[in-house]
Amino acid sequence: MTRTNYPDLIKELAFTDFKLRYHNSVLGYLWSLLNPLLLFGVLYMVFSVFLRFEVDNYPVYLLFGIVIWSFFSESTLGAMNSLINKASLIKKIYFPRSILIISSNLTTSFGFLLNFLVFLVFFFGAGLRPSLNFLFIIPYFIVLLMIIVGVSLLISSIFIRFRDLSHIWGVLLQLGFWITPIVYPLGFVPEKYHFWILLNPIARIIFDVRNAIMYSIVPSPESIIGVFLFSLIILFIGYFTFRKLSPRFAEWL
């Protein structure tokens, strides 16, 4: 039972999902850009008109956090739903089940790439220019992908047994959004909480990369190594949980 065309299957499933998601909507693919931009618009109005934070280039600061957080939340939610949406495939044919998770993450990655281009427009529009520090994006995005794949594998395989998880995860993502310095600066929070806030690897990624590309603050090696090890652990936990549970998916769905 050797089949070697899994890359084509992953691509095909990912593109199909991307096509279907915006099918029949007037604005089509634009929605994948509009969603985070509209969230940005709402938050920007509230936090620059009603409330004010002392942050240089606040729109760029805010949009970066939103783009990264949306990528994480849409990917993990999408991965959970992908197993349910593809139940008929799981029940009727064999292929490694992780293909569904990878292709779901690939779908949201297209959206992320588009959103990141929009962020770059804002970045240049604000008069900022990339320095060598921009290269820090590369290792941090690799770490971000590792976390997304790891968390997706973990929660999607548990979700098949415990459907309550999608509601719980939705609440946790809300909580995570607000305890991460996305709309406010870290300095806004009492210093004793900083350690705990930055323990969240997504918060760490947003904080470090934003500092590097916007304020030329180079992240410490401990920070990079720490978040890398953390994401490696998440990836392993996700991988082994998924590997243990996936042979029974067809029965549970």
């Binding site: 065309n5 299957l9 095909e12 499933l13 199909t16 096509k19 029949n24 495939l89 044919i93």
Partner: peptide, 17 residues
């Protein structure tokens, strides 16, 4: 929602081609 041709590619890859 997809066309006949798109479905040929989708089904074909699902079958391992």
């Amino acid at each position: 929602e997809l066309s006949g041709k798109e479905n040929i590619y989708l089904y074909g890859t699902v079958l391992g081609m």
